[in-house]
């Protein structure tokens, strides 16, 4: 009997608190600024920091507050500025050269694995965790995750990171997941 009471008491307490917290969560729901979300969608998500803000979201917040002009994102390029101008209904500006220049071609980076000393310095600067490796072991870049922000190039002490043209449109220049070039069946029939 005592056990049952204990069980019931705890159930009652937890149930009451559960209902209370769900109610509070609904009642006091905070909606993020929808403009910030929309601007953030347009920004390329390289998290490269060339705009002078720590990442794309902070830059989006600054634009929404009117603290930053829309022309500080080199990876987004003139296309991106155009989209931002259309979204916010403001005048389209030229890319600010202080923030960098737009890349001519879509690039990602690659590690020259023979030269890598396994120092992990590039892993620490990569904003999108696209580099795998461990101390004193060779590192490599997950091409599909790399945004081509080039932050790892100056970090490498042996200069073993090079720019290569992106095999598929890199993440900045596509909106959805990449489509496979061949079907799974074709891939399985591939002569190994």
């Amino acid at each position: 009997m005592n056990y049952l009471l204990a069980l019931l008491g705890m159930l009652l307490l937890a149930g009451l608190f559960g209902i209370l917290i769900v109610w509070v969560a609904r009642k006091f729901k905070v909606e993020g600024n929808p403009v910030v979300e929309q601007i953030n969608q347009v920004l390329p998500q390289t998290q490269c920091g060339q705009c002078g803000y720590p990442g794309c979201k902070p830059y989006a917040e600054a634009i929404a507050k009117g603290e930053a002009p829309i022309n500080q994102c080199p990876p987004g390029g003139q296309d991106g500025i155009g989209k931002l101008a259309a979204l916010l209904d403001v005048e389209e500006l030229e890319l600010n050269p202080d923030n960098g220049v737009e890349d001519e071609v879509d690039t990602i980076v690659e590690i020259v694995e023979a030269d890598c000393i396994g120092c992990t310095k590039c892993i620490q600067v990569c904003p999108v965790d696209a580099i795998v490796g461990a101390a004193k072991h060779m590192h490599t870049i997950i091409g599909d995750e790399c945004t081509g922000c080039d932050l790892c190039i100056p970090a490498c002490p042996v200069d073993c990171i090079i720019q290569i043209p992106a095999p598929l449109p890199s993440r900045i220049h596509r909106q959805e997941k990449p489509r496979l070039m061949i079907t799974i069946e074709e891939a399985q029939k591939w002569p190994s």
């Binding site: 204990a6 705890m10 307490l13």
Partner: peptide, 24 residues
């Protein structure tokens, strides 16, 4: 209910809920 021996458990629950609600 004569179940004081469950006080540690229920107080943890109380604290967690209080903090969470305060935050929201």
């Amino acid at each position: 209910l004569d179940i004081e021996y469950l006080k540690t458990l229920s107080f943890i629950l109380v604290i967690a809920v209080t903090v969470q609600m305060t935050e929201m």
